[in-house]
Simulated scan of single mutants.
Amino acid sequence: MNLNWEFIISNIPLYQKAAWLTLKLAAGGIVVSLILGLLCSAILYYRVRGIEKLVRVYIEVSRNTPLLIQLFFLYYGFTKFGLTMSENTCAILGISFLGGSYMAEAFRGGIESVSKIQIESGLSIGLTKIQLFRYIILPQAFSVTIPAVGANCIFLLKETSIVGAIAIPDLMNLTQDLIGMYYQTVESLFMLVTAYLMMILPLSLCLNWLERKVRYAEFGN
C-alpha cells in the first residue's frame, strides 16, 4: 500500500491544530470530572441525606446514556430553556458529565478499601469527618484508585472523537472533512490514528509509571 506522503505532509499543520484543541477539551473535561467524581464519592461514602439519591441518579443516567446524546441535549436541548453555550464549553461539560460518574465509582472503590480500624482510630483521636477524609482516607485510597482513574482519563481522551458531532474542528471532524474534500481516506485515517497514538501512548506510559511508584511506596519496595 502506497501512501500519498505529499498529502500527509501538507496537512500536518491542520492535524497539529486539531490535536491541540482535542487535548484542551480532554484536559478540561478530565479536571472537572475528577473534582466532580471526588465530590460525588464523598457524598456517597458519608450518605449525605437529600443529596445521596440525586448523586446515584446522576451516576446511573450518566453511565447509561451515550456521550453523543448528552452532547446533543446540552447543545440543542438547553436552548429551549434560553440557555446557550459555545461548542467548546458544551464539549467540556459533556465530557465532565460522563467522566464524573466513572471517576466517582473509581474513587468510591478506593475509599471503601480503607480499613475500618484506621477510620475508628482517626475518630478516636478527635479528627472531624473532613479531617479524617483528607488525612487518612484519601491518601490511602489514592494508590488504589490510580489504575481506574488512569483508565478513565484515557477513555475520556478517546471519547473526544464524538465532539465533532457539534461542529467542533477536532481530529475526527478534520478527518471527515479531508476525506469528503479530497477522497484521501487511507492517508487521512493514518494521520488520525497517528495523532491519537501520539496523545494517548505517552499518557498511558506516564500513568503506568505513576502506578508503579505509588505501589512501591505503599509496600515499601
Rank of each mutant, 00 (worst) to 15 (best):
1 M>S: 12
4 N>M: 10
7 F>H: 01
17 K>F: 09
18 A>G: 08
20 W>D: 09
25 L>S: 01
28 G>C: 06
28 G>T: 08
31 V>H: 06
32 V>A: 04
32 V>L: 07
34 L>C: 10
35 I>M: 06
35 I>V: 07
37 G>C: 07
38 L>N: 11
43 I>N: 07
44 L>Y: 03
45 Y>K: 06
45 Y>D: 13
46 Y>P: 12
53 K>A: 15
55 V>N: 07
57 V>C: 07
58 Y>N: 02
59 I>Y: 00
59 I>C: 02
59 I>W: 00
61 V>F: 15
64 N>H: 03
65 T>V: 12
66 P>N: 02
82 G>L: 00
82 G>W: 02
85 M>D: 05
86 S>K: 01
89 T>S: 15
93 L>Y: 10
96 S>M: 00
106 A>Q: 02
107 F>E: 00
108 R>S: 10
108 R>H: 08
116 K>N: 11
122 G>I: 02
124 S>G: 12
124 S>C: 04
126 G>K: 08
131 Q>D: 04
148 A>M: 06
151 A>S: 14
151 A>R: 03
152 N>F: 10
154 I>E: 05
155 F>C: 08
160 T>Y: 13
163 V>S: 00
170 D>Q: 13
172 M>L: 11
173 N>L: 09
177 D>V: 10
179 I>F: 00
181 M>L: 10
184 Q>C: 06
188 S>Y: 01
192 L>A: 12
196 Y>N: 04
196 Y>H: 03
199 M>I: 07
200 I>H: 03
221 N>S: 14
221 N>L: 13
